[in-house]
Amino acid sequence: MTTTIDREAGRDTRPPLLALVGPTAVGKTDLSLRIARAFNCEIISGDSMQVYRGMDIGTAKLAPELRRGIPHHLLDILDPAEPFSVADFKARCEEAIRDIYARGKLPFIVGGTGLYVESVCYGYAFSEEGGNLALREKLKRWAEEHGAEALHERLSGVDPETAARLHPNDVRRVVRALEVYETAGVPFSQLQSQRRGDEKTSPYKLCLIGLTMDRAELYRRINLRVDQMLEQGLVDEVSRLLEAGVRRDAVAMQGLGYKEIAAYLAGETDLDTAVELLKRDTRRFAKRQLSWFRRMKDLTWVHADAREKDGNLFEEICAIIAGKFRCDLEYTCQ
């Protein structure tokens, strides 16, 4: 796969990469299947939790029989007890992209984990060491035991630039910076530098499309999705994972839906409270997703609910992709 630009010919010869991102419950999955069929794509999951086997309901994983014969990558590749970091995702995703492209298909990342998607799109450099996404609670407990100053000193040892701009009493942000360091394998300050403006370049010819919608409608969909997950057996799914020996502090069990239901199953709360917490936390997560994606410079936004009403959502997105990759809409991209 060539990743250079043919400047003499004035032509961008980097391999194409398509991505569809947006908050949870915005409608990415159904739309992605139509896009994949139209543009000869294979889909790569850009979701940090769908990599785990046996975690289907809580991650809204599309069942194999509903994938319409379209190959999907990075689904069900790990046991729930195994850790998984952004560095792991980037390595596996790049391998999938090379494989898809070598077979004449268009690689298509679909998901809502912003750091994961962006790390691939802009070729972030990570160390070999992956981190543990469950560190946040452990770091909070460590701060309670040893004090905020000690936690800040810990950050100073690995990321002095970030530590210099954070007050020791700002425990939440200090914890977050340490979590990013342990997870991504690079200091938070370096990651921020990579994400700023024109400093970001890509080894791919990107077409990045973001779905958004009216906040009230998105929150309605989130609440409905949680209710549907419960009807589909979310409680039983979490119970099976725990019975199989997956620890509550495992990376997989920190995902939305799993930690709340695990607390209910442990008798720490009642089911109604757990469900309300899950809905609230998912709404907050969607807000953070939108904030992350709005900082991506190459993203083209499409207002999903407005286009759904007039029936032009799919056609508008096809036109964006065709324009970016110079495809004839009557044919699939090759």
Results as ranks from 00 to 15, higher is better:
E42Q: 14
F108I: 10
I35F: 09
E199D: 13
T113M: 04
R280E: 10
N132F: 06
A164R: 15
L277I: 02
N312E: 15
V246G: 02
F108W: 10
E330S: 13
E128S: 07
R225F: 09
Y181E: 00
S202K: 07
P107F: 11
Y116M: 02
L62V: 11
L155D: 10
I100V: 14
A91Y: 05
M229I: 10
E65W: 10
R283Y: 07
L278C: 01
D99P: 00
T113E: 08
L20D: 06
C327F: 01
V110K: 05
K61Y: 06
D249R: 05
Y116F: 10
K105V: 11
V246H: 00
F84R: 00
E144N: 02
L139F: 11
D47F: 00
G111K: 08
L62C: 07
M49L: 12
H303M: 10
E199K: 14
A263S: 09
A148L: 07
W142Y: 15
A164M: 11
S291I: 09
P71F: 01
K200E: 08
A306Q: 15
I5M: 00
D79M: 11
L290I: 14
D310A: 08
G197M: 08
E268W: 08
T273Y: 03
V51Y: 05
V174D: 13
F89G: 05
A87D: 06
D79K: 12
L208G: 04
D56P: 00
R240T: 06
E182N: 14
A63L: 13
Y331L: 10
G197H: 08
T29F: 12
Q232E: 15
N132Q: 07
G130H: 05
P71W: 05
N223M: 12
R284H: 14
R37A: 13
L66F: 09
P203H: 02
T59L: 04
I222E: 08
D30M: 13
I209Y: 11
A134P: 00
E145K: 15
R248E: 08
R220E: 15
R11T: 05
R295Q: 14
R247G: 05
R176P: 00
E118M: 04
Q289F: 03
T212G: 11
V235L: 01
L31S: 12
S85C: 01
D310W: 11
